[in-house]
Nucleic acid binder design. Structure first.
Lengths: 320, 320
DNA sequence: TTGTACGCGTTATCAA
DNA sequence: TTGATAACGCGTACAA
């Protein structure tokens, strides 16, 4: 016990004893066993992170933000990856619980169809914060952007520059950010008194391959029905769509204009740089981690934290 | 004890008892406590990863590879980030030890000046595998590429196309891959009987900013001493250098040719696509994780695993 | 200031 | 097949 006190810099230890303990600890290469500590304190100083993908742009930046905060606040990070699969996400959450992480940060996988697991987690008082792809109204805080408003804004940008026939490549039907972006798209059309043509709203999902396929469907429409401009749910989907447009021998933006969402690192480097919405990934990571650790420390207010986005105008929209 | 046996699917439990246990466990929402398990078994099924950066390209892919293997083999991942700082790397390793991870994967930070900490780790029989930025000859396995040979190859490519005055933007002087790439560069010059001009070898480090600064130094040389082609230690350094060249009003590759190393996702998208060496990041991650888990499982052979690279010829070298 | 007893949740071991 | 006991390494509570 005296050893424990000495190692933890408590007051009530004789200086000589303390020195002896510390010297011996050093000599023997003693390393405190965090596992035993966790067991007795019922606290691991570890948080779990579940990301749906580890691609090249958005999520690594978010993770960097999370890591920054956890490092500062002396927490650690168990990283899991759902690969957009519901089963893997479930496995991840279960093992994070088993490892008794103090809280969990989640960005939902594309294929998640119901929120029972999340609800159970939250109802059992497990601290959970969603980031980017969130589920609202089930009692957990969220950190994200204003998807609807940002989507409305970028759609309006196209409309303001005279485009009238707009298509939308939408996200998976169950994922919040996809739905909100779709809403924003529709709202912008309504505000401009443009007809909403369901034929021009195609589910692409979040991946490049889906964007490619979805765009090809649009390109198969008779010429007079084809869209003049496309709002993609995110940048990867836009990249796929751009490839489809180019493969069809058409020009961006002269034949078809297109905009994305994310500001992927590749967006500005493309042959025709992509107009998009910049999401501050690093900020999202930091705020999510902060909120989670606050929750762990007893903050039980549920917040929906919104970080600001920025419309980045490049060439693909043909407005510049 | 019977409960433990039932939950762990052991043989010697009566079927009725087992059913009762499982039902009750479910009803109570029982989740095994991995922490307690770890304490008694002295095994956490967790590995620690130390990366020097979480940028947009190489390391996220490596991590994806690591995650794939750990998921399959039922391990978990504690991710730490040294941000290229020696102190943070040290903190990371210490806390990973305290968390009793079963093994550690390390890619060394740029600023690490001595290997004492690594040696202690390895000498205390802690399973350690280095990946990408490795330290050889201290008893740990490594997974990387043949840096020297790849560097020699890409340098030779430039020489074969007639360039005679070559510069090198080198990595930090203490990091293995930087040194090896420098060696490869020199070797290619020697083989071609070209003079090695130390004035044209400048330390840029691994970051874009360093590449920019280093290139500016080269550009300040009198015109007749300036290099005609530049071999950068990696792609980010090359990106910085390209910016410096463009800022000086010069053309790539007509005034100065340049090549990189990594095949960062941005390399092919640049206005002048970058000739580079492709490193199979995902493979590196998988092989490193596999080797580490093998070590944990008792494999005590020290291997230096080399994964193949590929020379990717684009426009920046002016050879195509 | 120092030390003793106990408990965290689990498994191994050995006895019933 | 089931159960009792001890142990993993640590911190809390209390006693000396």
């Amino acid at each position: 016990m005296t050893v424990s006190r000495a190692l933890n810099n408590r007051e009530n230890v004789d200086d000589k004893t303390r020195k002896k303990v510390l010297d011996t600890a050093k000599r023997l290469g003693y390393k405190p066993n965090q596992i035993a500590k966790s067991l007795v304190l019922n606290k691991t100083y570890t948080i779990g992170v579940v990301v749906p993908e580890i691609s090249h742009s958005f999520f690594p930046e978010v993770i960097r933000g999370i890591e920054e905060v956890t490092y500062q606040r002396q927490y650690h990070l168990i990283l899991t990856h759902s690969a957009e699969k519901q089963k893997r996400e479930k496995d991840a959450i279960n093992t994070l619980e088993s490892h008794r992480v103090d809280g969990i940060l989640i960005s939902t996988a594309e294929s998640v169809k119901n929120f029972k697991l999340y609800k159970e987690l939250i109802n059992s008082n497990y601290p959970v914060v969603f980031f980017d792809r969130y589920v609202e109204g089930i009692g957990a805080s969220t950190v994200g952007i204003n998807d609807k408003e940002s989507s409305r804004q970028i759609t309006k940008h196209l409309i303001d520059h005279g485009y009238k026939k707009l298509a939308h490549l939408s996200g998976p039907s169950k994922v919040s950010i996809g739905l909100k972006r779709l809403e924003g798209f529709k709202e912008a059309l309504k505000e401009a008194n443009l007809e909403i043509n369901e034929e021009l709203i195609i589910e692409s999902g979040f991946q490049e391959s889906g964007g490619y396929k979805a765009m090809n469907k649009l390109l198969k429409l008779p010429k007079n029905k084809r869209p003049r401009a496309v709002v993609a749910v995110n940048d990867p989907a836009a990249f796929g769509a751009m490839r489809a447009i180019r493969d069809a021998g058409l020009n961006i933006p002269d034949d078809i204009a297109i905009v994305g969402f994310t500001d992927d690192i590749r967006a500005e480097l493309l042959p025709c740089p992509l107009t998009t919405i910049r999401q501050p990934a690093y900020e999202v990571g930091k705020k999510a981690a902060k909120k989670l650790i606050d929750c762990i420390d007893g903050d039980d207010t549920v917040e929906n934290i919104v970080v600001d986005t920025e419309l980045i105008i490049r060439k693909s929209c043909g407005c510049k």
